[in-house]
Structure formats: structure tokens, C-alpha cells
Design a protein around this nucleic acid. Sequence first.
DNA 1: ATTTTTTCTGCGGGATCCCGCAAGGCCTTG
DNA 2: CAAGGCCTTGCGGGATCCCGCAGAAAAAAT
Lengths: 243, 243
Amino acid sequence: MKVLIIEDDPLHRSYLNEAVRAALPECDGVLEAENGNAGERLARDCKSAHVVMDLQMSERNGIEAARTIWKERPETRILFWSNYSDEAYVRGVSRIVPMGAVYGYVLKSASDDRLKLALRSIFIESQCVIDREVRGMQQKSLGNINGFTEAEYEILVDIALGLTDRAIAQRRNLSVRSVQNRLQQLYIKLGVYQPLGGQSDDGRFNLRARAVAVALLRKLLNHSALERAEADLSAWLARQPHN
Amino acid sequence: MKVLIIEDDPLHRSYLNEAVRAALPECDGVLEAENGNAGERLARDCKSAHVVMDLQMSERNGIEAARTIWKERPETRILFWSNYSDEAYVRGVSRIVPMGAVYGYVLKSASDDRLKLALRSIFIESQCVIDREVRGMQQKSLGNINGFTEAEYEILVDIALGLTDRAIAQRRNLSVRSVQNRLQQLYIKLGVYQPLGGQSDDGRFNLRARAVAVALLRKLLNHSALERAEADLSAWLARQPHN
DNA sequence: ATTTTTTCTGCGGGATCCCGCAAGGCCTTG
DNA sequence: CAAGGCCTTGCGGGATCCCGCAGAAAAAAT
């Protein structure tokens, strides 16, 4: 059994290395990669390795890397070890985990023991381990109590990328009016909506831009989510007849 | 001489502690704080301490903390030790450093020796030390070759917060038209402008939203910059006659 | 199968945005 | 002082956005 560590911070990398060796004495090899690209390559070479990785790395972000790793070998077990439990990350991860895959998500702020326990649970016992806090986010986002549906999230991303209503309609196969409906919906859920008569904030805000702002502030969106979305977008644009 | 370390990651904190002790044997006390708030408090208590801190902490971000520390004691020497050289951070820092203050900015990716050297330079030799890469950003942003003027940056922040033209005009004491001029300027610099006849991207983008998107992607803006801006904004809103 | 609920769609209009055009400052340069 | 820049401002108009209204279509519930 081998373990592949993908983490760009050298300190954290060596800490992880140590933790893995301590928690998994039956492990007979620890590989290290300092960014997503290198990680993918190593994962390709060394089939059958388990993976523990950071989200948010400079070269190629963790979610991208995980996606390609899982695409090539869906039964790979991955433990995500991240600083943040931003909704953007949690949603990003749960969006790409293959059916029935074993994975984990623990925060860097967790204790030593917790990390080691997670390592054993996932790699030995085949059991998913998700930190309480992260779990919380998942509930909130999937069960839609105060959370966002897929449709709403999608349109949020679209306006965050700067698309017009028309472009969104085209991309999502909707009428322009439907797009606007979803936007209204989104504005309401984000608490940005201006109830007609209510002149509390006399048109100070551009709803579209404001929605993006609060989404960012609430960490519903973050840089890496935007990067992924931008990549998808330009792929779609390329595929589009040049109008 | 005492040194105050403000850093939320325990690993990095202890690494820093060690580095400080090694680089500054004449130092007779190292304090630690794990977020901005605690850091400010300690700095208040222990006058005359030098500070080395991370930007980007959960509780209260580094720039905020540095600002209040410097406000209370402008001659404090601060070494910023950060993962990123985002323009948003660099600009944020250089915006708050007091006249003639001694400070430094080194990346976490720098070598051991570089860090120790920086510690000695700043705290002993009273000399500013700024990493090459960070320097690069400074040049690019201050000298306006491919960089943004204060006015442009300001308006970028304003639209990122979701303000309308009118609100911006009000806030910055300009006419609406001037605001729009600056916006045009911004769109051009961000490479988002649509040259009239050019129907390459047939109105796919909402310029205002798109500008924010590319600013984020280019790390001209980031979460903490937005947070600061949002705080300023709501302060301003409170101060505003309720129209 | 029928009712209920949700979503999609077109229409219309007011507000906002985007921006060319042109006139008036200020500030530098010759 | 005049000439040329740069920034500001008003005007005007076309494009876009925001959204109430109401009927059609689809999905969910009964």
C-alpha cells in the first residue's frame, strides 16, 4: 500500500508525511507532490495509491486534480485536508465524488489524532470521514434550508462570470425571461432583493453585482470555484458557433 | 526586545517561533497570537514588541490587524509573512504602511535563510525587506504600466461591492457621468471593453459584472479586500442621511 | 386522473447601464 | 498667453436589466 501526498506547503507536507507513517505502519511508501499537476502524474504512474491532498494549491487546484484522478480511477480513496470549509469547496468536492467512492474531508485545524483516525478509517476501514463543520455545510447546501439549489448556484456562477441574461439563456437552454426569474429567486435568497415599495436603500445597489458580492463574502463562491467556472465557460464558448 | 507572532496555523506558528529564536538570539521573549484580534490585544499590552504576522487569518485578517497596530504605534516594525503575492494583498499593505515605517513582506515559499535574514534586517538593521516577487507587484501596481491608478482601483472595488453608478457618484463626490467615464477606463484596462463595431463576442458579457470577474481571476481583488471594502462601505452607509 | 404547485414563457415598461459627443475647467509645456 | 492634455460634466439614445402580470407547460401531490 502506498500513499500519495499532494500539498504545496512544505511544512504541511512533511507533517502529513509523518502523520501518515505514524497512522499507517502497514504503508510501504509515501510519495509527495507539490501541486495538482505533479500529483496527477504520480497518481497515474503509481496505480493503487491512496491520496491525501490539499485543496487550494497554486499550480492546479485540488478539485481539478481530484476530478482527473477520479476520472482515471474512480475507486481511488482521497482524503481532502483543507484549511477551509467554504461552501464553495464543499460543494465543489461533493460535486465530483464518484458514486460509492470512499473519501474524507478534514480540516487542518483538526487535532493530530483526528487526522490519524481519518487516515485509518478511509484507507483501511473503507469508511468515509467528513468533519462536523464540513458536514454542516453539506446539509445546508444540499438540504435547501437556507441553501441553494443546483439551478440557483448555476446561475450565480454565470452572473459571477459576467454573462448577460441572453448568454446565460443560450448556454442553459432557457428563455431570457426564465433566466431572469431564476435571478430574482437568487436575489431573494441572498437577501438582496428590494421589495418594491421599500425605499430603505434607495437603489444603491445593482442587484446583479451585489449578489455576486454577497456570495463572495459568504464564501458561496471563491477564487477556485471561479477559475473552474471560467474554464468551463471558455470551453463552451469555443464550442459555440461564432454567431 | 520582544517579538509578537500572529499566525493562525499552528505549524507555521511554531516554525516561525523557532526561526525567530534562531535568527534573533538577542530577543528575550516571543509571544504568539492565533488571530488578528488576539494579536492586536497583545500588541497593545506589550508595547515595543516587533511583529511578524500572516495576512489572511480567519478571525480578523492581517491587514486590519496591522492597520490598528500601526494606528496605535506607527513605529512598530512588522514583517508580513504570507503565502500569496496577490495584487490585492500587496496593495492592501502598501496602502496602510505609515510614513517612514520599517516593514517587510516575504513569501512563505521563501527559504529558511531568507526569512531569517529578513528578520534581522527589519528588526535589527531597520531596513525594509520586500520579496522580489512582491516588489514586482508593487511596481506593476504603483507605476501604472499595465497597472491601475488609485481612482481605477477604487471604482473597481465599488462595483465589486455592487454599488450603482449613482451610489458611487454620491460616495466619491462625482457626477454620474464621471463615474461612468472611470468605468469605461477600467473596462479598457481590464481588456473587457467591446470596441463598438467589433461583434466578436456579441454582447455575451455584462461589462460591469465581467470586470469584477476578471479582477478576481487576476487576483486584483480577493476575499479579504472585499471584506475590508464592505466594512468601509457599511460605515459610510451608516453615516449617510437616510435619503 | 385531477388538483396543486412549481417552472417556463412572452409582454410591457420603468430604471439602469453603456457610451459617443461636446463643452467647460485645471494643469502642464512651449 | 496660447496650445495641448486630462478630468469632469451634461445630454441623449440604444441596449440591458429588473420585475409585475398572466397564460402555458411540466412536475408533484392527492
